[in-house]
Design a protein around this nucleic acid. Sequence first.
DNA 1: GATGCTTACGATACCCGTAAAGATA
DNA 2: TATCTTTACGGGTATCGTAAGCATC
Lengths: 312, 312
Amino acid sequence: MNFQQLRIIRETVRQHFNLTEVANALFTSQSGVSKHIKDLEDELGVELFVRRGKRLLGLTEPGKELVLIVERMLLDAKNIKRLAEQFSQRDEGKLTIATTHTQARYALPRVVTRFKQAFPKVHLELHQVSPAEIVDMLQSGDADIGIATESLEGQADIASFPFYTWNHAVVVPREHPLNTVKPLTLEAVAEYPLITYHEGYTGRATIDNTFQRAGLSPDIVMSALDADVIKTYVELGLGIGIIASMAYNAEKDDALRLLESSHLFEENTTRIAVRRGHYLRGFGFAFIEYCSAALTAAVIRPAITPGRDVEE
Amino acid sequence: MNFQQLRIIRETVRQHFNLTEVANALFTSQSGVSKHIKDLEDELGVELFVRRGKRLLGLTEPGKELVLIVERMLLDAKNIKRLAEQFSQRDEGKLTIATTHTQARYALPRVVTRFKQAFPKVHLELHQVSPAEIVDMLQSGDADIGIATESLEGQADIASFPFYTWNHAVVVPREHPLNTVKPLTLEAVAEYPLITYHEGYTGRATIDNTFQRAGLSPDIVMSALDADVIKTYVELGLGIGIIASMAYNAEKDDALRLLESSHLFEENTTRIAVRRGHYLRGFGFAFIEYCSAALTAAVIRPAITPGRDVEE
DNA sequence: GATGCTTACGATACCCGTAAAGATA
DNA sequence: TATCTTTACGGGTATCGTAAGCATC
């Protein structure tokens, strides 16, 4: 058993059992891939893959269990490398953040600014993806830290921590009947065509729940991934918008008005997530602490360090 | 990085940084050991060992952290092998139990009998060692299951479960003044020279606590590792004994009398322990269930499977 | 002087990639 | 037929063990 075999097993699952793709992904020959799989199966005395003739179709029962362990081992192998870098180049390296447009645009700028000042030699990669992809990136090890309002809770292998809370708010064109409705009501809002976030983005679920609980079915005429797009179409008069309130800038969004809406929608909590068992560099802990001063390494580390849980 | 290097790192710590011993333990040459260490340090760009000249003295800071990860990886490597065996030879293999004399002699016979009947092809190894050594064997992977009354609780990396509870009791020669003291009191017991278990064995701590709380300092004239030895010397008249009550057999121990003592000493709980992250074979779960019907695989597995703990 | 670590060097085994053959869709 | 996997084979490399050299105790 060697690491190349383990990498091949993992990659075979990721590439949906196409060994040619596996070879490409790992920059090696497919004959070698084929042989490595065979060798490992021989050594273990178990078939790991379900085959029809020569084609691989999926994992056998032992294969499934084995992949779980293999993933953990390769995660640890990567941890060793990060651990070594942590000591050989304390404040150098790469930090990969997976986050959504909303966070990248409105919550993280101050954090990133401070971080770059403190760690000028660290290459910061901000990946702007969907919440579901954030989870994927954390699980595959492609991202060190994930930040989003959705999807991060309820994953057993991912630890998440509250970053900050915020509310949705209604934006309307400068001249709009709703400007005079005070206090604003859900019923009033639901009478106009709505533009808001895609499903799965930036608290969209919260918005849907709010209307549903009120027995309203608003006409959502358009959905977008980010507030900038939403605001653009609200300005064009296609409807009124529901966006995260921090996405409104009184000066720059002069053509729009943000209506006081905190009584209408429930609070959202944006969370910071790290895969359990992922070795975080010192500057990774620093980044999280810059997000929220309460989230020190002393808080984060126990939650992501394996083999440290309590009794029974 | 390869597995041989990882094995060498682990073994170097175990062999107290004597590379010659490491080579012997791993059945390889010490030149290879030396080179592997150097190669890994070069690859990682970090010194893992503290050196004085050519001698290795200990682990550096990164070395300490690395060893933790390495241990986990090698544990997983072994888990893969056990997992494969589980499927290739479902009811064959080896099960290693580390336990104390008392358990091996009085609690386990019925379990072992039943186990051998159900799994005739499994080679059962009963290692009779001290409680502290049980912990070592579990941690090093040399034992699959540990059973003892002492030492198994409070280890973060070991999960333990209650097996059964029992009491200490006083044994005296057939003709002895204490036979007529009813109910028996601690004060009466403390007036005679005592023979009982060594410290760290079979609830000795419980016995000491009991006397101390009563303000008594009995004269323990002799201590032994097991009840058979204790009973022998009680028979010879060297003192009265305090043993686990299940170690008394009315027929075979005809020369002795067991005095009702359950009101004197607090209950002891013998526990079954498995290292967290250790892959237990199907027959391993069966063995535990034969010990106590409440300890099914459904109970044990979640407690020893990593990466399955709850949120935050 | 005995023990222990490193370096040098030759033999071996392993790993990789090319190429050809066979299987599947 | 095009795609994919397996098997065969040769070249290259890494690993291992012996032996010699050197440091530590």
